[in-house]
Write a protein that binds this DNA or RNA. Structure first.
Lengths: 339, 339
DNA sequence: TATATTTGAGTAATCGATTACAAAAGCTAA
DNA sequence: TTAGCTTTTGTAATCGATTACTCAAATATA
């Protein structure tokens, strides 16, 4: 194994000191052209490469950023991470990925190890119910940016989408298409995003003088089986709905599968709108209307907010709470016109 | 901002030296129970946390591993990374993600910066045509593991799937189902995986006495539009095919869309098998037969191979070339029986 | 009690780079 | 030729932790 070349190896070879070598390599003006050229040439010859670890220790900047998500093999998070990486890489930052699997304890442990690893910032979609674990991050004055799922904290930035607005738009769209008995597949409303989608749905009904009924709201895990199950349940009602706004695309798909089985025509007799713009929604037959959360935009902006915070040398904390507008994507599953 | 507590802060407070504090914190036996207890208590009081950067510089181990992929928002790579992270996290390793966007130059730059960042290993699905950039990794004796796309190099491990076998199985399945004019949507055969899928397809035909024809092989980018286009082209042939084995699920989907447009019945008149087991294949109508590449298994094993290499203190290089068997997933698009 | 052996803690080097300060060398001008 | 600059280089501290080596104190042994 080749031992790594250090500045001292170069220094010894040239009979000078490490300080001079360092100056030559860093465009420090306090050095003669001749020495500089010689050092540079020798550095190349000896395959010298800077040890970023030593630099990080000295400078206090590791150029590593922790990105914490529930899991990365969900396309939504993968897209966000993609955008974060694309945005930060040109600035020399590396992305360290952590998956919490929605386990609060795991998340807290990751926060600890990221801090110990001396990351320059943490971008996180938090599974945490408490803000306490984040105090340690703030105490160390490490930029912290929430995305997707946020915590409300002093001086902490966040980038989220307006779930309320997305749900409102989706529901209003169904109303405008002429559907009147609109049900809702909700996620776990202890989680903000699902609560807001529920509230947006409810408000749209109210604003358009449609009676809101709890019978029409079913808490549905995000999978097709649960969607089918929930739809069956709705069909049993005396007054069955004629449309569903689902907080999850997979549950929406389940509903569609079940509707097909019952030979209920989509969208003529029944409309479905999902949420998330999962890749499959575009390809299905019928294609599924859904709400796009623009994960790329979210990642890009989260990264930009982080960059602003680190470049903000003034020490003042920049708090930005950016709420992205979701985009309703109307496809065949809810649009009589486009059929 | 709170200044981070170092072992010297603890030492000063207790009137001892940093060495003693270090020993207390590291279960070094050369320390009295009393001092140790005192240090431990004080460390907690002062919120001491080990600076891993300093440790990494001293020990030469950063506990960071670079993972390089074309892009992470492709579910295949996202799944591999998920498995790698799940496997390595319990061993204290952090994953640094790099996206090459299939740009060779970018990939080489990433290899450089990862080495400079003193990673303990590199796991990569390479876009590189040359092996030279990897010599630097080997020279530094850093474990290198290829997955999915490999380079053939001395002493370098790889985890791939048997593309030939997957293609062979898929094609054979079509033959067994009674299709006789089987076409192939191929990717760019300069890339090994596509070459091997092509060869597996061809061999299956030959082994079952079916004439191989270059007219039936179309190079098709991985998207639906290209798939539709390619299918149109095939239908124009005097002797149109009755089945397609596509090296890409998206192209397969395009073919199916086009078949539907032509009111050609699937699978009765025409069968389609894709490759990759993209999530949407399961949900489509008809569901699409495909070849699963078990990305989770691949990531898990790649991580394990890495762990073996680092734990292998002997300095001997462990070279492992693991080829995973792909799994043919038979769904409605190619199975008359299951319909 | 005197010597040998443990035990516990300090000293200082090390990992690799940067940089304030000091010092030496080169140059200018009187 | 020499005081006074400027330029270039060296010295040594620093970032935070670990550890071989040394030495003093405490304990054990004769």
């Amino acid at each position: 194994m080749e031992k790594k070349t250090t500045i001292y190896d170069i220094a010894k070879k040239l009979g000078i000191t490490g300080a001079t070598v360092s100056r030559a390599l860093n465009n420090n003006p306090k050095i003669s052209k001749a020495t500089k050229a010689l050092v540079l040439k020798t550095a190349v010859e000896m395959n010298y490469e800077q040890n970023k670890l030593a630099l990080a220790l000295k400078s206090g900047k590791s150029f590593n950023v922790g990105v914490v998500v529930p899991r990365i093999d969900m396309i939504f998070f993968a897209s966000i991470i993609r955008a974060i990486e694309d945005e930060l890489a040109p600035h020399g930052y590396h992305i360290i990925i952590c998956q919490t699997h929605d386990d609060e304890e795991k998340e807290n442990k990751y926060l600890d190890t990221l801090l110990n690893a001396q990351v320059d910032g943490i971008l996180i979609s938090s599974s945490n119910k408490k803000t306490k674990p984040f105090n340690r991050v703030l105490l160390k004055n490490i930029p912290l940016v929430f995305f997707d799922r946020k915590q409300v904290m002093n001086g902490v930035s966040s980038v989220t989408i307006d779930d309320f607005d997305g749900a409102y738009k989706a529901t209003k769209h169904l109303i405008m298409e002429g559907y009147t008995r609109i049900a809702h597949f909700s996620g776990n409303r202890d989680i903000d995003i699902y609560k807001n989608r529920f509230l947006g749905y409810k408000q749209a009904l109210i604003d358009h003088d449609i009676k809101f009924s709890t019978n029409y709201v079913i808490q549905t895990p995000s999978n097709t089986v649960a969607g089918r199950q929930a739809l069956k349940q709705l069909l049993k009602l005396k007054q069955a709905p004629d449309a569903i706004f689902s907080a999850s695309d997979l549950a929406a798909l389940g509903a569609i599968q079940e509707l097909k089985q019952h030979s209920i025509k989509i969208p003529d007799e029944f409309a479905v709108v999902g949420f998330s713009n999962e890749p499959f929604t575009k390809f299905m037959e019928p294609s599924i209307s859904t709400v796009d959360q623009s994960p790329l935009k979210m990642g890009e902006i989260a990264a930009q907010v982080f960059l602003q915070q680190v470049s903000n040398s003034s020490g003042k904390k920049v708090k930005k709470n950016i709420i992205l507008p979701p985009e309703l994507i109307i496809r065949k599953s809810s649009s009589k016109l486009s059929n």
